[in-house]
Structure formats: C-alpha cells, structure tokens
C-alpha cells in the first residue's frame, strides 16, 4: 500500500502527458479485451441457443423447427435423426468421464503434490516438475489416439467385454492429463502452509508422515479442493481425447454402474464436434443445438471456476 502511494506521488506530475495517456489507454484496451471476450461468449451462446428453443425462438425472429427447452434439459434420448434432443444423455457421458478421471487424477495429484512439497529433494523437483508439465502439454488429440489404440486393447486383455470406444480408457487419459493441474495448484497451497506449523508438529514428536497428513494437508485443504474443481472443470471441457476415444453413440448410462464404463457414449464436447463433422442429415435445428450444448457446457464450467476461485480466495486470506 505504502509503495503504491509513493509511486502515485512520484508519477503524479507526468501522469497526464499525452504519451502516458496513450500508453495507458493502450494497456487498458488490452486488459478490457478479456471482458469483451467474455461478453461475446455469453452473448453469442445465449442468442444462438435462444434460436433453438421453442420458448425463445420467436423472440429471435426464427421460424422453422425448434425444440422444447424442458425436453432439452430433462430428456435422456439424444437422437438427431428423430429430432430428440435430450441433453442428459450427453451430460451422463460427460459426468462419467469426469468421475472416471477424478478417480485417477485426484488421489494421484494430491499424492504428487505432497511428494513434491514435503519429500522430494530440490534436484528431484527440478526434474519431476517439467516432466509433469509435459503430461499437461501433450495435445489432447494425441491422448485420444493413445486411448483408442493402446489403452483399450490393453484393458481388453483383462476385461474382454470392453467396446472399441469406451468411457473407461477415455477417462484414464483425461485423468492423466489433469494430474499436473491438481498437483501444481495443490502444491502451491501446501507450500503456502507456514513452516511454523510443520516445526510445531515435529516439536511434538510427529513423524514426517504425521506432519504431511495431519498438518499440511488439512491446512492446505481449501487449496486442494480448489484444484479439484478446476481440474474437473477441465475434464468436463476436454474435447478431442473423448471425441476420438469415447465413442459417437449418444446413450444415457448410469454413472454409478461400473459396467457402463466399458461402453461407449457421447460426451457433450464430442457431440459438438460430431454435429459439425458427422454425416448427419438436416441442417438448421441440429446446428443450433450446438450452441445450446455449448451454453450448458459454458455454464457448468463457469460455475465450477467461480467456486474454485472463491475457495482459493478464502485460503489465501487464511495466511
């Protein structure tokens, strides 16, 4: 705060020179572009999705076919051919991908974070961290190909009933992909735990295990939680890996039934790609459903990001 005042004092005289104004407004415009982007996304998705629903289409001046908003949000059948647009069929597949990848990424990510922040030597960290970054840097279409060509056949040896396209192998690669995200944000949270707390633990005769699990993890819990939400929101929005590996047939599956993970289904993002590339007949209505799915996807990820931000803010205030 005080340095800010100092700066204000020092720069007050020149603040209004034309050059300062020019550069300042350029930088401001750059920052404002992000707001423009958000507004465009929201405006575009809302107006285009409105053209899809019977309820709102007349407001947008769209005649032609429309779909019921209630059927869209509560229907469990997605069959473009029969003009049935029940988004829950797609949501169930997305949910399964999210659950599957969470089972892999959350424990592994937290364990990685504990290892990096509490156990690993400086040298080990300098090798492991870039290696983990590469996990997140591999293009998602490549992950999809890995799942389809190598992982599914490998699973097939153990579980012969598995489909060529299945949720399981897609979740595995999505899980691997988001491990670094969980790990790096959780590790930041763990590093932010003051050393005093650790020292106090050791002083009480606690072992490293006790300190890690009994002190550091609980103290960093909100940060870990925020990393979970952020990573899962990434899994929900993941597109190419699931497009390549999860299948193309929309099905409403029960996410709690383990056997349904061996089947293929159509997650929301893959459905969007399919709507633009598949050989479906019929232009208008199917095309507009693209934006309706996009809106659902955007709202879900937005809510998750906001929750994650909120939780993260709280933990930052704690220390």
């Amino acid at each position: 705060m005080s340095t800010d005042d100092l700066e204000t004092d020092l720069t007050r005289k020149t603040e209004n020179s034309p050059r300062e104004l020019l550069t300042r407004s350029f930088f401001f415009l750059c920052a404002a572009l992000s707001v423009v982007t958000t507004i465009s996304i929201v405006a575009l998705l809302v107006t285009e999705a409105a053209k899809f629903f019977t309820l709102t289409a007349p407001l947008m001046g769209v005649t032609g076919e429309t779909a019921s908003i209630v059927d869209f949000l509560t229907g469990t059948t997605w069959q473009i051919h029969n003009k049935e647009f029940g988004v829950l069929a797609l949501v169930s597949a997305t949910l399964m991908i999210t659950i599957g990848s969470a089972i892999i990424a959350l424990p592994l990510g937290v364990a990685t974070a504990i290892y990096l922040s509490e156990y690993a030597s400086k040298q080990a960290r300098s090798v492991l961290k870039p290696a983990l970054e590469i996990l997140a840097g591999v293009p998602t279409v490549v992950y999809g190909f890995f799942a389809l060509i190598y992982i599914t056949p490998a699973i097939g040896v153990v579980l012969p009933g598995i489909g060529t396209f299945n949720i399981l192998s897609a979740s595995i690669v999505v899980g691997i992909m988001i491990i670094p995200m969980v790990a790096s944000i959780s590790e930041d949270a763990m590093s932010a735990v003051p050393d005093d707390l650790r020292q106090a633990g050791y002083g009480m005769g606690a072992t490293k295990f006790d300190v890690s699990t009994g002190i550091v993890v609980p103290a960093a819990l909100s940060g870990i939680f925020s990393s979970f939400i952020l990573a899962l929101s990434r899994a929900i929005g993941e597109t190419m890996a699931v497009t390549v590996a999860a299948g193309a047939q929309a099905k409403f599956l029960n996410p709690l039934d383990p056997s349904s993970y061996l089947e293929g289904a159509l997650p929301m993002t893959a459905a969007m790609v399919q709507l633009l590339t598949g050989d479906i007949t019929g232009g208008g209505l199917a095309y507009r459903s693209l934006f309706a799915i996009g809106l659902v996807l955007f709202v879900i990820t937005l809510i998750m990001n906001i929750i994650s931000d909120y939780v993260a803010q709280r933990y930052r205030e704690a220390y």
Binding site: A31, A32, S34, V35, T37, T38, S40, I41, L44, L45, L230, S233, R234, I236, G237, E238, T239, T269, M272, V273, L290, F291, G294, L297, F298, T301, L302, M304, N305, I306, S308, D309
Partner: peptide
Amino acid sequence: IDVNISNLAGVPSVVYGLL
C-alpha cells in the same frame, strides 16, 4: 477483470471454437 481472466482460462477450448 482479474476474476474474468482466471475464468476465461478455464473456458473449454471447444467453446472458444464456437466463439
């Protein structure tokens, strides 16, 4: 702007495609 940017970082790439 601050919150907005961190949210934009979490928007799925397919939504940017729609944009």
